[in-house]
Amino acid sequence: MTFAVSVGGRRVECAAGQTLLDACLRAGVWMPNSCNQGTCGTCKLTVLSGEVDHGASPLDTLTVEERGAGLALACQARPLGDVTVGGGAEGRTTHPLRDLSATVLEVADIARDTRRVLLGLAEPLAFEAGQYVELVVPGSGARRQYSLANTADEDKVLELHVRRVPGGVATDGWLFAGLAAGDTVSATGPLGDFHLPPETEDDGGPMVLIGGGTGLAPLVGIARTALRRQPGRQVLLYHGVRGAADLYDLERLGELAEEHRGFEFVPVLSEEPDPAYRGGFPTDAFVEDVGSARGWSGWLCGPPPMVEAGVKAFKRRRMAPRHIHREKFTPADALG
């Protein structure tokens, strides 16, 4: 059975049990979304007519009063009949969400407990640099989100950076266990709103990107995209890790710095000092390096405490909050 979801003058089909967000994104109708697990509230919308089941919507994100007022979380709500929604979609189109069948092309150990996984696609995937895909962990039914390190034109081989979590279902149980070239992987994507504005709206202003651990992945895609648009723009990329053994892609990012005088890559070690690298937290390094970030945009991906520290650091340097972008989903690290 399917229901009709009317949104911003468009009608999309939604199967019983399918979420509003999933149905819209699959039909190419954009709506704000970030965590896709009901915790961030980005996809909150108004149900103008019809009934929905709020599913697992947490009370913290969608209060009783909000439910009474007709609000719903698109990523959790499932229609119980035909519905009309508003307040979310603004008529923008997006890359349709798709189910993907991918083949593992390469699994490489690139740093301490860190692997690069390359997935080959039969059909190219349309996405924006910085978005993520969700992998289905074979046998468990669990799903894990991994950011793409690709630029949008690298659309047939997806590059994921994965950090091992001891005992983790997805890592110790799969990606760091039996996974090998030639395996088939089920995934959906692209997801998320962590990406550059469209080129026509990109002012080419200075950017700072701070990644913690494998939070570097989307920033590699975003930084390369930004530099391609404006080869001379100022782009500072900080990579925060515990020790030098956790660093990777030094050569690749070093080359990028040689090609672009405005690009700087700054590894920062928090726990295992090494005279070759900066010590401390990457967010503090940014505060030391940049006196004013007025007119800059900021990009943060990593463990929540690092992201929160980054928001504070950016505001301290007077970056406008609407130019602060953060990847809000719970890092796969924390779930394993």
Binding site: K315, M319, A320
Partner: peptide, 14 residues
């Protein structure tokens, strides 16, 4: 009031 506070926080987020 909205626009005034938007501009204030945009210019001085700290």
């Amino acid at each position: 009031m909205r626009i005034a506070l938007e501009e204030l926080f945009e210019a001085i987020p700290n």
